[in-house]
Design a protein around this nucleic acid. Structure first.
Lengths: 170, 170
DNA sequence: AACACTATCTATAACTC
DNA sequence: TGAGTTATAGATAGTGT
């Protein structure tokens, strides 16, 4: 799409690379915007430049789409892990992550939206806290398991959590 | 870029929209891949179709890039919130989220990579747990604050956390 | 060093099977 | 109805300022 066809290998010249990055990133975000408008899709894009500068695009918002994705991913992991009998701790970790993600989103809403939305999101925040409270009680129990983990540093993660679970039963 | 110029409004016909979605999504992911190769960038894209089916692209991986982004976002929130004197609890929540994100990534590594990578990621997992242990001690303290929150349901989130902080000092 | 330009390449809308 | 084709709109590599 230019005066010359470009090879699909890393651009070596830092200056050229920077220009290419800016142009193509803009193009990518434009395409993403068009896709969301034309097809009613929700999209989140995160890009890090070589210099680790972050750029993002989101419709309706990066956080919302990301949280939705994580939630689905967590749920499918739950199912998978239940079916292969992995320990409770992993599931607790993931539930905590899910709740925390929701909290982050709710807090953002609370900071950015108008009063009515604040009230609404605050209610959800409240509920999330209540749930979190009970989860944390269980989580504290899991902490002692993490202490066992340190003693078992030679083992791979998956096997270790299973072994710890067995040890606790003995 | 087709036989006709297309209006930038939602495609009404579900069939056409589905075709457009598939083609443009593929195009978007291709562009993202080129950007990552040409410019050495890290990219994560998540897309939800109208039917809420998730599609994702990531280089090196959606989770890794997403976790990196969340981490940075959390850090910048820390700074912002410190500067406006918001309560400790919010910060604790965010630190927990950060650690949990890392745990999720580490667990994935542990499940998917080879033995050597497992050993490496396991060490990080261990460190994350140690850090989490000390954080949770503080977090338990914050739980009683969340109980106060329920009593203050009429207030907007931001003001509430500040008020709770004040109450705790009294 | 952030713009505009434009020749050329690429993505894709409509079409076909 | 998914996969391939084609005419055209759109993106952009190199260039100039």
């Amino acid at each position: 799409m230019g005066r010359r066809k470009i090879e699909m290998t890393a651009v070596k010249d830092p200056n050229t690379r920077q220009v290419t990055f800016s142009k193509r990133r803009a193009g990518l975000f434009k395409k993403a915007n068009e896709l969301s408008i034309l097809c009613g899709a929700e999209i989140a894009i995160v890009v890090f430049s070589i210099g680790n500068r972050p750029y993002s695009f989101g419709h309706p918002a990066v956080d919302l789409v990301a949280a939705k994705f994580l939630e689905q991913e967590i749920k499918s992991n739950d199912v998978k892990q239940n079916s292969v009998e992995v320990g409770d701790m992993d599931r607790l970790n993931q539930q905590l992550l899910e709740i925390q993600s929701q909290l982050l989103v709710e807090e953002k809403k609370g900071l950015e939206h108008d009063q009515i939305l604040k009230q609404h999101s605050f209610k959800q925040l409240q509920d999330a806290y209540s749930e979190l409270q009970s989860r944390v009680k269980d989580y504290i129990d899991a902490i002692e398991v993490s202490e066992c983990l340190i003693l078992l540093a030679q083992e791979p993660v998956l096997q270790t959590t299973q072994q710890v679970k067995k040890r606790r039963k003995n």
